[in-house]
Computed example of a mutant assay.
Amino acid sequence: MTDHANSEQNHLERIAQLEAALERETLLRIESEELLAECEDRYRNMMDRSPQLVIETDIHGHVTYANPAAHELFGYSDEMYGSHITRFVHPEDIETELQVFERGLAGGKDTILSRIVTSSGDLRYVFNNSIPRYRHGALDGLIIFGMDVTELKKIQDQLENSEERYRALAEAAEDYIYLFDEDLRLAYVNRAGARQFRDEPERLTGRHITDLFPEQTAHRQEQSLRQVLKTGQSLFVENMYPFLGRGEVWLSARLAPVRDSQGRVTAVLGISRDIS
């Protein structure tokens, strides 16, 4: 075989190898695209069925996807798509939301409570966070996950209002009302109680019981508080207390356990009255 024939044969073999490599690459790309499409279908199906709110945006903040839970809460259908996320945010929160969005694109992990205005004008509270979304290795937008906590927020507000009313009543009371935490530090005292120490409530809170009374009195009071913390049972006691400028004062005191959401006793509420 001549050199020319050999060269021609090598050239044809090289072309065949390139064609085979191209075919393998094409098949691999097709398989990868099919696998990616399958993964995206699974992801979309999972997001569609999620009870949490899921919203996707482009890098400019325009909505590209919202799952059924988001549509239901916001009260919008397809008109959500293409809208900027700030369209659904309370006007006073827009600047904060934009800052959080920019931090989210940069990989920030803020979890915030957002005020959402629905299509009917109702105000909803949503805890949300986000992660950057990438496509073909490039930043493509943001995926926002949220949970509607409106009812929890209402309960919290009611509790805070109740606490404010309780404090108002406590401050107006002539009885001495106080709260010791499980470390036996004064967490709260009303003004009537603080007056017995000739001090202000703010200066007394945080102090240990041994800093408030002489050793013998503090020891007796400590035993009573620890009994309530340990047993979870209320206790009624009558004891003598020495107060600066008043001498010995006899007080009747009812000590009651304060429990957290798990039922654990974390503090003792006391109400004392002068019976001298």
Rank of each mutant, 00 (worst) to 15 (best):
E202R: 15
M80L: 12
A5T: 15
F197D: 02
S276Q: 14
A20N: 08
E238V: 13
I55R: 01
Y176H: 08
R207M: 03
A267I: 02
N6P: 04
S272C: 07
E171L: 06
D58I: 04
Y43G: 11
E13W: 09
V126W: 00
A253K: 03
V249P: 02
L142R: 00
A192V: 04
G263S: 06
D211C: 02
A187V: 08
N67P: 04
R195F: 08
P91E: 14
Y43D: 12
R226E: 08
E248N: 14
I209F: 01
L113N: 13
L244G: 12
G82L: 04
D183P: 01
L35Y: 10
N10Q: 10
R195V: 08
W250D: 09
T118W: 03
G247P: 10
R207N: 01
H4T: 15
S252K: 11
E31D: 14
S252T: 14
G270N: 04
H219V: 11
E92H: 13
R203I: 09
G82H: 04
R24E: 10
S224Q: 14
L142P: 00
T118C: 09
T231L: 11
V258W: 03
L255F: 06
S50T: 10
Y81E: 11
Y188I: 05
E40S: 15
I85E: 00
A16T: 09
F145Q: 05
F74W: 05
T111E: 11
L179D: 02
E160W: 09
R14V: 06
A173E: 05
G245M: 11
Y178P: 00
P201F: 03
G108Y: 00
D211Y: 01
G146Q: 02
I177Y: 02
R259G: 05
F213T: 01
G193T: 05
E238S: 13
G121D: 05
L244M: 15
E34C: 11
G137D: 07
E72R: 11
L269S: 06
T217G: 04
R24K: 10
L255H: 01
N129Q: 04
S234G: 15
Q262W: 10
A168H: 09
L36T: 12
Y134I: 05
E171I: 07
A256Y: 04
Y176S: 03
S224R: 12
R115W: 01
L235I: 06
L169S: 11
H11A: 12
D260P: 01
L225P: 02
L98M: 15
V237L: 11
E174F: 12
L18Y: 08
S114E: 13
V117A: 05
P257H: 06
M46Y: 14
F197R: 02
R133C: 06
D175G: 08
E25K: 12
E102Q: 09
R44K: 10
H219K: 12
P91S: 14
D199H: 15
L27M: 10
I55Q: 02
L244E: 15
R42I: 15
S272I: 04
G137W: 04
L105G: 02
M46K: 10
V268C: 05
D3M: 09
